[in-house]
């Protein structure tokens, strides 16, 4: 009988020790970590994706050694998770057959939600192109006039 009593006492003790742990705590602690995934989309200026282009990621602490290299998918997309212990400007170069671009991505306090390279709209480009063409036509007209007079 004695060992049975001891066993049930021990059992109750274990339960008693376990229960208050959840029932009596008033403090709370929440931890979180953020994995910032940077997603990139590389396309040629005619809108065609840079499928299969190679990308090279450079961390801010060593801009000459690649931190990550890889290949874009068929839609010209790729993504990477930067090391947040290295805040600063991360450089990402995408290149294919001698064509490509470099984008500078701030990571850390100055992190931006989105960004891009280039940046003229089609309308701006058409307007600028027209200015250049008009400049050329004007030059041509000016000099052909001089020629006739002479």
């Amino acid at each position: 009988m004695k060992w049975k009593f001891a066993a049930s006492f021990l059992f109750l003790l274990v339960i008693a020790l376990c229960l208050p742990g959840t029932a009596l705590a008033h403090g709370a602690k929440i931890e979180y970590t953020v994995d910032v995934t940077i997603e990139l989309l590389a396309a040629y200026d005619n809108g065609e994706p840079m499928a299969g282009a190679q990308f090279v990621v450079y961390a801010p602490d060593d801009p000459s050694t690649p931190w990550l290299t890889g290949v874009c998918d068929d839609e010209g997309r790729f993504s990477f998770i930067p090391d947040t212990t290295k805040p600063g400007i991360w450089d990402v170069q995408v290149r294919q057959a001698g064509h490509g671009d470099i984008v500078h991505i701030p990571v850390g306090e100055d992190a931006a939600v989105s960004g891009s390279t280039g940046g003229y709209t089609s309308l701006q480009i058409v307007l600028m192109a027209l200015c250049v063409v008009w400049g050329s036509v004007g030059t041509a007209l000016y000099f052909s006039r001089r020629k006739r007079r002479a």
Partner: peptide, 22 residues
């Protein structure tokens, strides 16, 4: 030397614009 300038100017414009046509 000036005689060719009108032609050069117009062809510069053509060269400039044509690279935009893919």
């Amino acid at each position: 030397p000036r005689r060719e300038i009108p032609k050069a100017s117009l062809l510069t414009a053509a060269f400039f614009v044509v690279s935009w046509i893919h």
